[in-house]
Design a protein around this nucleic acid. Structure first.
Lengths: 131, 131
DNA sequence: GTGGGTGGTTACCCCGAGGTGAGTGAGCGG
DNA sequence: CCGCTCACTCACCTCGGGGTAACCACCCAC
């Protein structure tokens, strides 16, 4: 996706799905919605993600102008990721979908439209983790 | 997904993504939003989809109570697929995401919030179709 | 009898997303 | 000196989603 020219989409959802299509992308968006995170923080915030995939997802999101990458050239290099305005708008657009999933799949009670249920710590990964 | 017990989701979006995660699911939803379709109609409406995948996606959506499957026991059996109320609500929840993709990825002018741009006939498939 | 359309199922294969583990290079605590 | 942290990159492997094609039973038109 990073280097591939975008295929012709049939609709906006297709296009959006390409942006958030990665396994961890929405989780990344959520974490960054809370506050900016450093790489290692993100890794710890998303138990089960591998560094390779986290890095590549972040690169893709950066290319898509969803996240901002700031490097501080200190001696242990500090890299901070944060949401751009575009990223925030994407997160907002995801709100109804999250609420839908929360309500109709999880059967939970949605408090706001925005939160689909905060990322539960200690999540069981789909097929990932230790395996 | 059909038989697998749902994994523990970390949020509603994850759950929703599992429902619409198939390559053609949103396109199916769109086609059915217009009007109910028969199997062969759907196949023709989604150029590039294989029968196997179309059938499995429909089964999954049926299991998720997104689509309704009605069989008429006539001599060439007629099977009609239509959206349930749950399916319509999912489609609505997808509206903002479609609008976002339309606006920010495709750079198009969104006419309504709902339509992210109707499925353009003669679409170039991602890697599918004749290839 | 042959071909096409109805709505599928089954077996087989391929590719890419994603997981694993190792390497990197400088600093710093023990 | 050892090893941990930071933020990655690279090579390798696995697994499953999706594509291809054959097959099914039944009927109609040619």
């Amino acid at each position: 996706m990073t280097t591939t020219p975008r295929p012709r989409y049939s609709c906006g959802i297709d296009a959006a799905m390409d942006v958030i299509g990665g396994k961890w992308k929405v989780l990344i968006l959520w974490a960054l919605e809370e506050r900016p995170h450093r790489f290692g923080e993100l890794r710890r915030a998303l138990p089960g993600v591998s560094e390779k995939v986290l890095a590549s997802h972040l690169r893709e999101l950066e290319n898509d102008r969803i996240v901002r990458r700031e490097v501080r050239e200190s001696v242990p290099p500090q890299v901070t990721y944060s949401l751009t305005a575009l990223g925030s708008s994407l997160n907002e657009a995801l709100g109804p979908l999250g609420a839908w999933g929360q309500e109709h799949v999880l059967g939970g009670a949605p408090h706001h439209a925005r939160d689909g249920g905060q990322p539960t710590s200690g999540r069981t990964q789909r097929g990932a983790a230790v395996q």
